[in-house]
């Protein structure tokens, strides 16, 4: 059974002051196995963020269903949704979403504090993660005192610390330069190799080349996917770019 299964997902936005409707997702179907590292690519406005927000329960679908471990997300009660988000999902956002009133350490511990984890356990979990992400020296600083790349690694640490079933990342390299992006992707890849499932939205072919599978989304549905298989990073990147150019020039949905 797949860890994450998405069936006929549909999302229609209705504008606030008119009846104009935008179909952000028409029918999305795909699944993610445990331990996979899946990238989602697509043009701006194709519905990637919408998809990710529905999976992360930040937004509700108009139709269809998301199953995690075989359980439909729409069955989760309102009261449990925050705890679900805290304990089962990890988030990495494009604009980091760190809090300036907390130190780096407290930012990372935030989800654990919200889950009322004992202090000793929190600290036990913290040390190996910050060491692995190379931010050990900064844990007592504040977010506005570290670089963008470091901030994003903090965000990754915050996502990891709850030992989530899946990490959801929306353009994690979007605000980083190429060197910091490279570094972050290597870290994500390393994490994936320890068995962590990751679902990432990205515009960057280089970033996508670190994953094991790439899904292409257009006009609200998945229309193509490629597996990395035994290819090297560079070969895989080459294929991703080819797919993008071919697919975008062809236009339409005739897969």
């Amino acid at each position: 059974m797949a860890l994450l299964e998405i069936k006929n997902l549909k999302k229609v936005y209705t504008a606030r002051f008119s009846n104009q409707q935008t179909e952000a997702l028409s029918t999305v179907n795909f699944s993610v196995e445990k331990g996979e590292f899946v990238s989602i690519m697509g043009e701006s406005g194709s519905g990637k963020t919408t998809l990710l927000n529905i999976i992360s329960t930040l937004d509700e679908a108009t139709g269809g269903e998301v199953y995690l471990d075989g359980k439909p997300l729409s069955n989760i009660k309102d009261k449990e949704i925050s705890a679900f988000r805290r304990n089962t999902l990890g988030f990495v956002f494009q604009d980091f979403n760190l809090l300036d009133n907390f130190t780096i350490k407290d930012n990372i511990l935030l989800p654990l504090v919200l889950s009322k984890t004992p202090v000793a356990e929190m600290e036990e979990r913290l040390i190996p993660i910050v060491r692995k992400l190379g931010i050990e020296a900064h844990i007592n600083k504040y977010p506005y005192e570290v670089s963008g790349g470091q901030k994003q690694r903090v965000a990754v640490a915050r996502a990891l610390i709850t030992q989530p079933k899946i990490i959801l990342a929306d353009e994690p390299t979007g605000a980083l330069d190429s060197k910091a992006s490279q570094n972050l992707m290597e870290i994500l890849k390393g994490i994936n190799e320890t068995g962590q499932t990751i679902l990432m939205v990205t515009h960057s072919t280089r970033a996508a080349s670190f994953s094991s599978r790439v899904l292409f989304i257009r006009d609200g549905s998945v229309y193509h996917e490629i597996y990395r298989g035994e290819q090297t990073s560079d070969e895989f990147m080459e294929r991703i770019s080819q797919s993008l150019t071919v697919l975008s020039s062809r236009g339409g949905k005739d897969e």
Binding site: R86, N87, F91, L99, D100, P111, L114, R158
Partner: peptide, 15 residues
């Protein structure tokens, strides 16, 4: 803004 971010990572209304 802070509370919005915290809600994203799992802060609920009771908290």
């Amino acid at each position: 803004e802070k509370f919005q971010i915290m809600q994203k990572v799992g802060l609920d209304k009771d908290m």
